[in-house]
Design a protein around this nucleic acid. Structure first.
Lengths: 105, 105
DNA sequence: CCAACTACTTTGCTATGCATGGTAGTATTT
DNA sequence: AAATACTACCATGCATAGCAAAGTAGTTGG
């Protein structure tokens, strides 16, 4: 229902989750799904884009519980990108909150 | 730059501004522009859509300072829509904040 | 061996915001 | 009176990102 709200926030969310440690695609999907209602068909293409743009790098690692996993890590560029997106989200969400406050009184 | 963030939030913003009193399109553009960097080419089509969907109604009123203005008012349906979108935005923005918190530590 | 789960990928659709350009009335300046 | 700026509205076509749907394939447990 709030599909449109999601536009653009997935990128900072994914980058944020990669900040602490490498994660594989499927793991990212599960993790984000705890908060936002998204699907694999959204995340995998996004990861591809992030790689094409040099924000993340990948390596393969076999799993003891299933198929080989493709792990994603942040590049320096990716860290900058994350910082910039975090700032942008803050400014943006505060602005929206301020505008909507108008209606709550 | 945060074009994508904007997707979907303009609708609650416009409805919120209409809650207190009728406003005309150009006025809405100026008002929202104080907070968000948007253009007329975004707002007017949105207003058309809101009218088509029965969330707002319009009336014309001459201005002493320029061309005739088209004022927009909330319908009962529009008020319900606003309430629903306000709730959705709250849930959504809190979820995103929680996810992003991961990266700030 | 079959079901369930893990894990990744692709294709085509849709919605929304935006750039751009257009029309026209009013006010201000020269 | 002409030129300029501002108010006010509208329409067209594009770009982007999320999503549904479907597919491939390895692993594990009964």
């Amino acid at each position: 229902m709030d599909t449109q709200f999601r536009k653009g926030v997935l990128e900072p969310c994914v980058l944020a989750l990669l900040r602490r440690r490498p994660r594989y695609g499927y793991e990212l999907v599960q993790e984000i799904r705890k908060s936002l209602d998204i699907t694999e068909g959204t995340v995998y293409p996004l990861l591809r884009r992030l790689k094409d743009e040099g924000y993340v790098e990948t390596f393969l690692k076999e799993s003891s519980e299933g198929p080989t996993r493709k792990y994603y890590t942040l590049t320096p560029r990716g860290k900058e990108r994350l910082a910039s997106l975090l700032g942008a989200w803050d400014v943006f969400s505060r602005s929206v909150d301020a505008l909507l406050k108008e209606a709550r009184r």
